[in-house]
Amino acid sequence: MMGEFDAIRPYADAEVPAVLARLLADDEFLGILTQFRFPRLAGPLGWLLKPLIAYRLRLEFRDVRSVAQLQTRVERYVDHSIERATDGVTYSGIERLQAGNAYLFIANHRDIVMDPAFVNYAVYHAGLPTPRIAIGDNLLQKPYVSDLMRLNKSFIVHRSISGRREKLAAYQLLSAYINHSIRVDGESIWIAQAEGRAKDGDDRTDSAILKMFHMSRKGEPFAEVINALQLTPVSISYEYDPCDQAKARELSIRANSGSYTKVAGEDDQSIALGITGYKGRVHVHFSAPVSQGLEDSKLLATEMDRQILSGYRLFPVHYLAYAMWADRDPALAVPTAAERFPAEELRVAETEWQRRLANCPPEQRPYLILQYANPVRNQYRVKAGLPL
């Protein structure tokens, strides 16, 4: 692979054995695996279990020589953790994706690890190559996390750079890498529609990200560049967000004090909860590559929002939250949950929703409701042809 992308690109096949060996000698990584596999025994018997787990994994991965082999080997673990934490994953629109084509998937962003994992799951099970995944360097504080992500086709987005010139150079490199990946390597890309998760459930595309795709090909018309990238909107819908209480707390603190400071290890906790926490049902929808709104980044952002929001699957909980929302729009023709769903499905959802509300301190509840209500308002505004 070309040297100019070495600072951000995923690992190549030739690097896999050495990186695996490094991971399986990393004490902290082995500690996390032990904790995940044997939560009750990890504390008192960690010293004994860690070498055993390392030994077993070395045996299991000893013949892995490529990223594709590694993904195939890890796939059953991923499927198992997905099946354990969801009531099933469904997808639609995947038949639009053609083998041999590379796509630039741009998706709404709710969960740090699981958003791209669910897209991977859908694509992998459809027999197509998985995309390369954009991940912010703010999440790669530990060497083993960086190794893990880059083994799984992740590339690095340098977000923690502060100087204007450095930022520009980083975006230029990112733009060149994305274009190279799709047009030269024939490898799809997954990237979130905005930096950071939409903690209030209000999914919007940041036009600066769309502009970035064009940066490395400034001499060519914007529409032509976007067309060549096969920009494909993806809607990821979770019935329940395992991090909804933490998001409500953050939004509440932010609203009352004007700011919110993360404590050390908070991102790691979000990642762990996002992976293992209960999500109910999950739906992933792939729209067709965009063919309108290509004149400039603002129009394109509007078109992306239209596609992502209309492809979102609304579950009973979303309608229940919308009915309780103080800011709901009386002019929008939104049906009740009872009009949309069978009684038994609704009963199960009401029980779970009441449980979540009861676990949320009263002053934070409006922010819990907001997360589930916003997608309803957004989708019905799109349906009605109203501006968002």
Rank of each mutant, 00 (worst) to 15 (best):
G265A: 07
Y278F: 15
S235F: 06
Y238G: 03
N256K: 15
Q292V: 08
G280E: 00
Q245Y: 11
E250K: 09
S259A: 14
P242F: 10
D241A: 04
F286R: 12
A264K: 15
G280Y: 05
R306C: 01
Y240D: 05
K279Y: 10
I236E: 00
Y278D: 13
Y238H: 07
V284P: 00
D267E: 13
K279E: 13
I253A: 07
S310L: 12
I271D: 07
A301C: 06
K262F: 00
A248G: 09
A255I: 09
E295F: 04
S310G: 01
L299W: 02
L294N: 00
D241M: 05
P242R: 11
A288K: 06
Y260I: 02
V290R: 00
S287I: 00
C243Q: 07
A255L: 09
D241Y: 08
S270A: 13
Y240T: 06
I236V: 14
I253C: 04
D305N: 14
V282W: 07
Q292G: 02
S252G: 10
Y278W: 13
F286G: 07
G293H: 01
S237I: 03
S252M: 11
V317K: 00
E266M: 05
L314W: 06
V290F: 01
L314G: 04
T276G: 03
E266P: 05
G293A: 11
Q245C: 03
V284T: 05
V263D: 08
P316C: 10
H285K: 02
D268G: 13
P316G: 12
A264N: 12
G311I: 08
K247F: 05
D305W: 00
A248Y: 10
M304G: 01
E239S: 03
A288P: 09
S310P: 01
R313A: 10
A301M: 03
G280N: 03
R313S: 09
L294G: 01
K298M: 14
L309C: 13
S252E: 13
A264C: 04
A246T: 12
K262Q: 12
K279N: 07
T261P: 06
D267T: 02
Q292A: 11
A272K: 13
I275C: 04
Y238M: 04
T302E: 14
Y238P: 00
S237W: 02
A246F: 11
R254L: 15
A288N: 02
I308Q: 01
L299F: 02
R281P: 03
D244H: 06
T276P: 00
R306G: 01
G293K: 01
S252F: 13
L300V: 03
E250H: 09
P316A: 11
Y278G: 00
T276E: 11
T302Q: 14
